[in-house]
């Protein structure tokens, strides 16, 4: 359950940004989570319910956008979408495993809706 640590960081980042903007409350937090980040979205949603208590985000929605994994194949020098729900990066053309992930590990707060 490392999602609780992440949810706490998420609320802290959101509050800092909302305060800077002079907002009174946070209505929604929009996050981007990569398919290879190791984050379980349901666990993050659950952890958020605890982490938001007593904060400016106490009544906020959590909006999660998923980002698929993208890797680079050294053999054919092209990027490919990791078409495997387990996140194993094997080039669909060359069938060679890739060591270079270019996208999919994101875990970030993109923007907020505040009032």
């Amino acid at each position: 359950m490392h999602e609780f640590s992440l949810a706490v960081s998420m609320v802290e980042l959101a509050q800092a940004a909302a305060r800077r903007e002079g907002a009174e409350r946070i209505e929604a937090i929009h996050v981007e989570i990569g398919a290879l980040s190791g984050v379980v979205p349901e666990a993050l949603e659950f952890a958020f319910l605890g982490a938001r208590e007593g904060t400016m985000a106490a009544a906020a929605r959590l909006e999660i956008t998923y980002r698929q994994g993208v890797a680079f194949c050294d053999a054919c020098q092209t990027e490919f979408v990791i078409d495997n729900r387990f996140g194993i990066a094997v080039c669909p053309t060359c069938e060679v495993p890739s060591a270079e992930l270019r996208e999919g590990r994101e875990m970030h707060v993109s923007h907020l809706e505040v009032a």
Partner: peptide, 28 residues
């Protein structure tokens, strides 16, 4: 989520709510 317009000072105005760009990693 809504029709948004970017304002001159970097935040974005929305009817009812304002959008604040954050773009920071949870691991920051």
């Amino acid at each position: 989520t809504r029709d948004v317009r970017v304002s001159a000072h970097g935040t974005t105005e929305v009817t009812g709510a304002r959008i604040v760009q954050v773009q920071r990693s949870l691991m920051a």
